[in-house]
């Protein structure tokens, strides 16, 4: 590095002072990010009484009573299986239907592809939360209000635009020669889809799974208008119950929030690399 650069701002980047500053900034923002979560977890082990006296200290006599109370009041034993069902089935549905349509769009020539694919692409920016009122009325017309079917349909439908975009672009990258030679050998499109495309599309399927698992597990706005029976509710709906009647029972509320937070944090700890990659791939504008 030449001498003159050391005096300028940009010349200093990479120098010792700049590095210390970079560490300081990153550390500051990391603490700001993690401390509220830590604070929440810490206070979930205090009684509401202790919380009111001291919010910033460690719990004097840590208790699990909040968790027991929250688990029962929130009826989490019912909500956990629901969340699992919604997340698993919707994600599988999105992956399957996206790969299927993506294969057709990418590898079967048709005049219909341009308008159909285009209409899915438009959906990427059409945020479905915008449509929650007509969706609510629609499920009532169809008679599927308060059913798992409604939740699954809406979740799958909401995931399809991005899913189909990513699947189509990925399958376009698979050499057409593979499909053509299989055709010459007499294989039908369904065989080709199952035997050639699906195994090769595992990376894009993983991306879709990552994107949708976190999104659907945490989803609130849509399921909030689709179901009202406890038997059908998901975790976020159950947690929201703690904001009204129990909003002053901080102990229970915090325990409920931790219960709502832990599954996805665990998922994140295990799949951090894939999630990071998936987010970068999924953040597309259409």
């Amino acid at each position: 590095m030449s001498e003159e650069h050391k005096t300028t701002f940009w010349g200093a980047v990479g120098g010792k002072a700049a590095k210390s500053l970079a560490y300081a900034v990153m550390a500051l923002f990391s603490v700001m990010t993690l401390y509220p979560i830590f604070w929440l977890a810490m206070n979930s082990f205090k009684t509401t009484r202790e919380f009111q006296v001291s919010q910033l200290g460690f719990p004097v006599a840590p208790t699990l009573a909040n968790y027991k109370g929250a688990w029962e009041f929130g009826e989490f034993a019912k909500l956990f299986p629901n969340s699992l069902i919604y997340t698993a089935l919707s994600t599988l549905g999105i992956i399957f239907f996206s790969l299927l349509a993506g294969f057709a769009f990418a590898k079967i020539r048709s005049k219909a592809t341009a308008p159909l694919y285009g209409s899915f692409i438009i959906g990427i920016l059409l945020t479905i939360q915008t449509l929650m009122i007509p969706l609510f009325l629609e499920v009532n017309i169809l008679g599927i209000y308060n059913t798992r079917l409604a939740v699954l349909l809406v979740y799958i439908g909401a995931g399809l635009p991005t899913g189909i975009y990513l699947a189509t672009e990925f399958i376009k990258g698979i050499p057409s020669a593979l499909v053509e030679s299989a055709r010459i050998d007499g294989a039908g499109y369904w065989r080709i889809f199952l035997a050639i495309i699906t195994p090769m599309a595992v990376p894009v399927a993983t991306t879709l799974a990552i994107l949708n698992i976190t999104g659907i597990w945490n989803e609130f706005a849509l399921i909030n208008i689709l179901v009202s029976r406890t038997e059908l509710k998901s975790l976020p709906l159950g947690i929201f119950k703690f904001s009204g009647s129990l909003s002053t029972d901080y102990g229970k509320q915090f325990a409920a929030l931790v219960i709502g937070m832990v599954p996805m944090l665990a998922f994140y700890v295990v799949f951090r690399k894939q999630i990071t990659k998936g987010v970068a791939a999924g953040a597309i504008k259409g």
Binding site: T33, T214, P236, Y268
Partner: peptide
């Protein structure tokens, strides 16, 4: 820095 994205918005 990505952690908050993982947590449910309701939480």
């Amino acid at each position: 820095l990505y952690v908050p994205n993982i947590i449910s918005i309701i939480v």
